[in-house]
Design a binder for these strands. Structure first.
Lengths: 111, 111
DNA sequence: AACACATGTCATAAAACCTGACACGAATTC
DNA sequence: GAATTCGTGTCAGGTTTTATGACATGTGTT
């Protein structure tokens, strides 16, 4: 996995931050977790730690729900996405990689 | 400020995460704040919220201290940096901007 | 009418964080 | 060499945040 992807998958955010970033309630976030739409890590004391990818995912979930999809629908949508992107890098990943070198110069994590 | 810079400056991390990311102790982090080497935001209840830039900064501080610089030395170093980068965008920012459009396609925050 | 869904709300407990104070070893200054 | 400064450790006491589980509710579906 690339630097950038790594960073996006770091479990660093408490639920409070995610709440502010997504404008969802704790209840909603936990409910989506309960239904396996997201699977945040847990810190030492058992508290949830979300990644930026989780935040993305939650915003997607929000859109889908607003669009009338049910939780189960969304589960299937995500499942299809997962199956489709198995194995070979998709174009997004390819693009990302092509710019990786440049960005490696930028930002502390890349130093 | 660009999308990317915005994101780097979002105050999203609690001190526990920063502790894990930097391997500093709470005491150290607070002491550096007390000496104005960093100025994290505060959440609603008064708890510190750090940005990714803050994390960068803390890692720099660590390096400087390891290299034998004192807190005051570091204050001056940062002050000089600040003065130098006032006004016009530096090359790093320019590079960032040039790649901004591409990256706007990638990741939720850019959608 | 009964039920499923997505969410609100409340109680209770644990974890994380806050500030302030005192201690301490290693340098530095008097 | 005694006193001071610096960066950090640690502890106490209080506040904030998060966790789980249960019950409630409105909207739509069988």
């Amino acid at each position: 996995m690339s630097e950038r992807e790594l960073r996006r998958n770091l479990a660093i955010l408490p639920i409070g931050t995610v709440r502010e970033l997504t404008l969802l309630t704790d209840r909603q976030i936990r409910y989506y977790e309960q239904n396996q739409l997201i699977t945040p890590n847990r810190g030492k004391g058992g508290q949830r730690r979300f990644s930026l990818n989780d935040v993305d995912r939650l915003l997607e979930i929000k859109d889908f729900l607003d669009a009338g999809d049910s939780i189960k629908d969304i589960q299937e949508i995500f499942e299809k996405q997962r199956r489709k992107s198995v194995g070979q890098p998709d174009s997004e990943t390819a693009l990302r990689r092509s710019l990786q070198k440049e960005f490696a110069q930028i930002g502390r994590f890349g130093r």
